Simulated scan of single mutants.
Amino acid sequence: MRVIVVEDDPDVRGVVVSGLRSAGFAVDEAANWSQADLSMSVNDYDCLILDRMLPEGDSADELHRRRQAGMAVPAIMLTALDDISDRVAGLEAGADDYLTKPFSTDELVLRVRALCRRRTTMVPPVLRVGDVTLDVARREVRRAGVLQTLTPKEFAVLEILMTHQPAVVTRTELIEHCWDERADPASNVVDVVVNQLRRKLGEPAVIFTMRGTGYRAGPVRL
């Protein structure tokens, strides 16, 4: 899942970005709305993490204008404004969630993950391909009942492939959803992670290369 953090305080932004990346998110960052708008014009995000007070002013007003213009990405506001009236204003402006500072990084991760899942409400909580199961909420993958130890990036790639099975997911789509702006689209990072997944999951294979296109998860096609 790919998210963007909009926060002008570099220290707070660093903590949020680090916490989300450690939890397996692909994270881009912006210090103001201008930078955020540029990123959102070229990237598809699953969630927007937004400081309430930015250099341009109150983000509630900025978010409201963008909601009216059709921006649908789920948003969570981070703010020191904790009065009930402030919460109401933020939610009425179009925020989907509201978390006051200081906050727990663990709680933020859970709230962001819940908002990301909201974009794919038709996806079942447990995905299955053959004897491989992926529990979205528990962040667990099992094969034939045996728990698999995956890195956050491996989990993210497998989740995308299993969510879209048996359709083919292109390398570009995997880069867009599982990596952030630091990734080099010309590199072989996708192939490396997929190969690691195949090795860990073992046989019979559940991830297949579609030459010239990308990858798919599912049973063997005869």
Rank of each mutant, 00 (worst) to 15 (best):
residue 82 D to P: 06
residue 149 T to G: 06
residue 188 N to Q: 15
residue 79 T to L: 02
residue 7 E to K: 04
residue 44 D to M: 14
residue 122 M to I: 03
residue 205 A to E: 14
residue 167 A to I: 08
residue 132 V to E: 03
residue 92 E to V: 09
residue 201 L to T: 06
residue 13 R to M: 08
residue 105 T to Q: 05
residue 205 A to L: 13
residue 149 T to R: 10
residue 9 D to E: 14
residue 179 W to C: 01
residue 58 D to S: 09
residue 29 E to S: 15
residue 173 E to P: 03
residue 28 D to Y: 06
residue 12 V to Y: 01
residue 165 Q to Y: 07
residue 169 V to M: 14
residue 21 R to F: 09
residue 7 E to M: 08
residue 184 D to V: 14
residue 144 A to N: 11
residue 163 T to G: 01
residue 17 V to R: 01
residue 27 V to A: 08
residue 125 P to A: 15
residue 193 V to T: 14
residue 46 D to W: 07
residue 120 T to L: 06
residue 99 L to P: 00
residue 46 D to S: 14
residue 155 F to D: 11
residue 177 H to Q: 14
residue 222 L to K: 04
residue 95 A to P: 04
residue 2 R to M: 13
residue 209 T to D: 09
residue 91 L to Q: 03
residue 198 R to A: 01
residue 186 A to R: 12
residue 120 T to I: 12
residue 88 V to F: 10
residue 102 P to E: 02
residue 191 D to A: 13
residue 193 V to D: 00
residue 64 H to C: 09
residue 204 P to W: 12
residue 213 T to I: 08
residue 70 G to I: 10
residue 199 R to K: 13
residue 170 T to F: 13
residue 190 V to E: 01
residue 87 R to M: 07
residue 155 F to I: 10
residue 61 D to I: 11
residue 214 G to P: 04
residue 129 V to Q: 05
residue 41 S to Y: 00
residue 87 R to L: 07
residue 172 T to H: 15
residue 80 A to I: 10
residue 7 E to Y: 01
residue 215 Y to H: 11
residue 97 D to S: 07
residue 140 E to I: 06
residue 206 V to N: 02
residue 52 R to K: 07
residue 208 F to H: 13
residue 171 R to C: 12
residue 112 V to A: 07
residue 58 D to V: 02
residue 163 T to F: 07
residue 93 A to L: 08
residue 118 R to N: 09
residue 59 S to P: 01
residue 164 H to G: 04
residue 208 F to E: 00
residue 31 A to T: 04
residue 176 E to M: 11
residue 175 I to M: 12
residue 172 T to K: 08
residue 141 V to L: 09
residue 91 L to F: 09
residue 78 L to D: 01
residue 190 V to P: 05
residue 84 I to S: 06
residue 133 T to D: 06
residue 197 L to K: 04
residue 11 D to E: 13
residue 212 G to N: 06
residue 167 A to L: 11
residue 61 D to S: 09
residue 79 T to H: 04
residue 66 R to L: 03
residue 192 V to S: 11
residue 14 G to Y: 00
residue 140 E to P: 01
residue 210 M to P: 00
residue 153 K to S: 12
residue 173 E to K: 09
residue 32 N to L: 09
residue 198 R to H: 03
residue 56 E to I: 09
residue 36 A to I: 02
residue 5 V to H: 00
residue 168 V to P: 02
residue 55 P to M: 05
residue 143 R to F: 02
residue 57 G to E: 11
residue 74 P to N: 08
residue 134 L to T: 12
residue 215 Y to F: 14
residue 19 G to S: 10
